[in-house]
């Protein structure tokens, strides 16, 4: 089961996570006991600068976003990263005084882990906001699909198709991009399948509306059946888009719990 939710986050955090993991093992197995750790002021200063930049950009993002969940969730991650960085600075100072300091070593490991965890929280919070953008577009499509019920003339149908088309294209593009980003294979496949179904149903829906409008305008027999067919296609599309919204919000842990 993938540890990181998206390829972007995985690409950023996987390498350093492995290194910290190895360091912790060395530490726990006593491989570093009795060994001097030289001056780490330089590398710690680099981390400090990077934390400062990340938090600055993060705070700018929080100030400009309209996403209230991100405004609420991101600040704790800033604090976690900043506190972890303080531990690293303190550890470097302690090591300068005593290169064999065991507490300093603990601080280094805790600080590194905290940086990793805080950065992961930041990236996940940001990623969840990106997902909410996709979901907003999906919900817009769901809403516009309901307008199919009131299309009763060919002019209405032309307008409806002109409006629905670009929205569907945008939704499809966003979902395809998201699908590529996911590390969880089952979630990718679920998104792919549902989106495929929606794409296939779109022309079917337009056709069903067209038949309904044609029969209704000529007062021919079969209006009810045409209406049922239109409703059936509309409901299938809505169900698939709702499934897409559900899957977009799944995380690896949900899958584990379900399993």
């Amino acid at each position: 089961m993938p540890v990181f939710h998206t390829k972007t986050i995985e690409g950023i955090l996987e390498p350093v996570a492995q290194q910290i993991c190895h360091l912790v093992i060395m530490h726990e197995e006593g491989e570093v006991d009795g060994k001097a750790i030289p001056d780490l002021t330089g590398p710690v200063a680099a981390v400090q600068a990077a934390v400062s930049n990340l938090v600055r950009v993060g705070k700018e993002t929080v100030q400009t976003t309209e996403d209230q969940v991100m405004k609420r969730d991101m600040p704790p991650a800033f604090i976690k990263v900043e506190n972890s960085c303080s531990k690293l600075v303190q550890a470097a100072q302690m090591l300068k005084a005593d290169p064999y300091s065991v507490p300093a070593r603990d601080y280094l490991i805790d600080g590194s882990r905290g940086i990793l965890s805080g950065t992961s929280d930041l990236l996940l919070t940001f990623d969840e906001a990106e997902v909410r953008k996709v979901i907003r577009v999906c919900k817009g499509i769901l809403e516009y699909l309901t307008v199919a019920e009131v299309v009763e003339t060919m002019e209405d149908l032309i307008t409806y198709t002109k409006n629905l088309g670009p929205g569907m294209t945008k939704m499809s593009k966003m979902i395809e991009e998201r699908q590529q980003e996911l590390t969880h294979q089952e979630h990718r496949q679920m998104l792919f399948n549902s989106l495929n179904t929606v794409k296939q149903l779109l022309p079917v829906l337009i056709s069903a509306i067209k038949i309904f409008v044609a029969i209704k305008s000529t007062h021919s027999a079969g209006v009810d059946e045409a209406e049922r067919n239109r409703c059936f296609t509309f409901e299938k599309m809505s169900a698939e888009i709702s499934e897409i919204i559900r899957v977009l919000q799944l995380t690896t842990w949900d899958e584990d719990t379900w399993a």
Partner: peptide
Amino acid sequence: DAGEMVRQARVLAQATSDLVNAMRSDAEA
């Protein structure tokens, strides 16, 4: 700017990686 957040996170991850490497290499040496 979506990309800027990710860029800065990448820089931080690399800086942390460099720090951990500095700690590990001396320990291993």
